[in-house]
């Protein structure tokens, strides 16, 4: 009897100790942070590229929030494929916990990304889709949704029966093709039609010339959707010169100062603005998650926002259009 009581007492004491330990152990180990390095390989580290700078600041914000070390790599120019391949090779050699990469269009890249995984490094692909076996986590702008938004904006601006001319860069550009698909969806929904697609590359002049010709020959078009900045500027120039800014609606993409000025003066009716900050932020967040061995969403798509004259002074929109360096 006595012995039993002693045993019960001991069990009680031990149980109390265990409860204590469990209750306070939450404080003791804490979330495992620090020490981990996430390498982000972008297409460009150019400080003059607003888009990539916004991606970088998103990545930095996430790194700070999650307490990981951020290693930014990439070429200076977006056309420097060799630079990105070298950066990826170096990154693999340094063996970070995870690599988040915005891959360029080159046949050697998928192979390199295979090496990344073979080295036991978690992989996250950002910005540009990539055909890989067993696709890694993917974080990018939702270009289809952006296209739909552009189509919706065109339909709203043009009133009934929108007839849009779409200016794209090239037939092979996957992003532009997705945007185009989105526009098609929107047209279907609004009962409009796409009267033609024009490929102007990244030449403002070409877009201008196409538009001038178009305005002469095909008066049935009532809206233009330009899928990149240069096309937007080219089309706007042509419309402005023809003094037909009221007759023709123009929906552009991205948000350079020139485009914003065109929006202010009314030549451009709406701009579809992406959220590269969110791409960087969610890219790093997903990479940290993957490095921590947790389940990640296979695909994270980030929606765009339509900016018009009506909402361009909202602080939220201003944040998007004029990326302000965040506190690091």
């Amino acid at each position: 009897m006595r012995k039993q009581r002693l045993t019960i007492l001991l069990v009680l004491v031990l149980a109390t100790a265990a409860v204590y330990a469990v209750f306070f152990s939450k404080l003791i180990p804490g979330p495992d942070r620090g020490g981990k390095t996430i390498t982000v390989v972008l297409k460009s580290l150019n400080v003059r590229s607003d888009y990539w700078q916004a991606v970088i600041s998103g990545a930095q914000t996430a790194a700070k929030e999650l307490g990981v070390r951020l290693d930014l790599q990439g070429p200076l120019q977006e056309s420097d494929v060799e630079g990105q391949i070298a950066a990826l090779r170096d990154a693999i050699a340094r063996k970070p916990a995870a690599i988040a990469v915005a891959p360029m269009d080159d046949p050697r890249i998928p192979e390199l990304l295979g090496d990344v995984r073979a080295a036991g490094i978690k992989l996250v692909v950002m910005d540009t889709p990539l055909a890989l076996k067993n696709p890694p986590a993917f974080v990018a702008n939702d270009h289809l949704q952006a296209g739909r938004l552009a189509g919706d904006a065109a339909a709203r601006a043009a009133g009934e029966a929108p007839a849009v001319a779409v200016f794209s860069d090239s037939q092979k550009a996957p992003i532009s093709n997705q945007r185009y698909a989105g526009i098609e969806q929107a047209m279907k929904a609004h009962g409009g039609r796409i009267s033609g697609i024009y490929y102007s590359g990244d030449s403002e002049q070409l877009a201008y010339e196409f538009t001038v010709a178009l305005l002469r020959t095909n008066p049935k078009v009532n809206a233009f959707i330009a899928l990149n900045e240069n096309a937007t500027l080219g089309v706007a120039k042509a419309i402005k010169e023809a003094k037909k800014t009221n007759a023709y609606k123009l929906i552009g993409f991205e948000s350079s100062i020139y485009e914003i000025q065109l929006l202010e003066e009314g030549t451009v009716d709406a701009l579809v603005v992406q959220k590269p900050f969110n791409v960087g932020y969610l890219g790093v967040k997903t990479a940290v998650k993957a490095a921590g061995g947790r389940k990640t969403d296979r695909t994270t798509l980030i929606g765009s926002t339509v900016v018009t004259r009506a909402n361009m002074n909202d602080p939220e929109i201003q944040r998007l259009m004029f990326p302000f360096p965040v506190i690091q």
Binding site: N278, R319, L320, V326
Partner: peptide, 12 residues
């Protein structure tokens, strides 16, 4: 707010 864009996007 340093993370204003995230707050606007409802990410935080």
């Amino acid at each position: 707010h340093p993370q204003q864009q995230l707050i606007n996007s409802n990410l935080t």
